[in-house]
Design a protein around this nucleic acid. Structure first.
Lengths: 202, 202
DNA sequence: GTCTATAGTCTGATAGAC
DNA sequence: GTCTATCAGACTATAGAC
């Protein structure tokens, strides 16, 4: 069972085209608001051909979310309990902002899923995500108690890092409408850096 | 033309029921992902009866967005250029957080619209919103130059206030999944207050 | 004003030729 | 593997009885 037949070159290429197109569409309109027609057109395939590579609309979406989760947790996972506290937190902030800059569609896919009540990833939120956050929050709390960083609620610190960095991906349209500048990220990076440095410096 | 006939009591009641139900549904699934069936059921009306009160699905959504915009800009509008700078900014932060707590569905409706590329409110973003933000950013820049608050990028300060406060409405499901506490807002208020006080104090 | 019935379109998924 | 043709159900909106 689960024979793991290797995919041919063309199979891999088409699967990737489909997933890329699906990411584009799902991240904008959410699961219910997206159609196979949109995805097929974006992928340059016919609708039945799409369903040759994936059994259903659900399966495509599930595949995207599954691949996303690892990438999503990685920046926090990399925060080293044995590193220099302020550097570790600021490094996390920077990695997270880079993700918003380089993978905005993934951020919006996630945002859409949460907005809709997280029906497909609620278990991952209370499971893997909560476990990781609890672990890292404990580390941050220790740093606080040891006087390495200012006293701070570690959970809300993490939430604020998520909120600030993801905002530049999820609300990109609004940010650009207000700024009418081309790339908001350089200035955003400087601002966010100052914000957290001031908050955490002892 | 535009006779402005006063609505009967029952008309007003039904229109309100429809708009409330539509807010509930649209804020979760976005425009495309929502159906008149869902809205009609939530409002306790039949689908054709819904379309007796509003000409189309589009019209209901447009009405919601229009009512929202005033409410949405009001907290920033109230920031007084002649007040005490730090108090004015912290007051804005608090009003915005109260909006996330008291009107989370409105926040999610807005988030959904932005995520989808703001097709129906892009003009408002580059128009009314940008105008207001430009005006208030200039005020904040003056406060900075006068040494009343620390030097800060006024635009990204405003973005960060939006991001932080709206996060507790838009990502409510995730916040509660991680915290397993009942009401995140008291602690969030304390944290956010500290964050901006530290950033802006001279 | 509210209902049932239904028109006309879209959507997810399948059948079967090539 | 990819296509055309198509089905069954869901969708927005309208017609018309009451």
């Amino acid at each position: 069972m689960n024979e793991m037949k290797p995919l041919t070159r063309i199979q891999r290429k088409n699967r990737e085209a489909i997933l890329g197109a699906a990411l584009e569409v799902f991240s904008q309109y959410g699961f219910r608001g997206s159609t196979l027609d949109q995805i097929a057109q974006a992928a340059g395939l016919s609708k039945p051909n799409l369903l040759y590579y994936f059994p259903s609309k659900d399966a495509i979406h599930a595949q995207l979310l599954e691949s996303l989760l690892k990438t999503w947790l990685d920046p926090l996972y990399k925060m080293d309990p044995d590193g220099e506290p302020l550097d570790e937190i600021m490094g996390y902030v920077q990695r997270k902002l880079e993700m918003s800059r380089d993978y905005p569609r993934e951020s919006r896919l996630f945002a859409n899923e949460i907005l809709q009540g997280a029906p497909r990833i609620h278990d991952a939120l209370t499971g893997e995500l909560k476990t990781l956050v609890d672990e890292k929050a404990a580390v941050i709390a220790d740093w606080s108690k040891a006087g390495k960083i200012a006293p701070v609620d570690p959970y809300h610190l993490i939430f604020s890092i998520w909120a600030l960095t993801q905002h530049y991906a999820d609300f990109d349209v609004q940010v650009r409408a207000v700024l009418d500048a081309d790339d908001p990220f350089p200035a955003a990076g400087t601002y966010i850096d100052t914000l957290f440095t001031r908050l955490l410096s002892v």
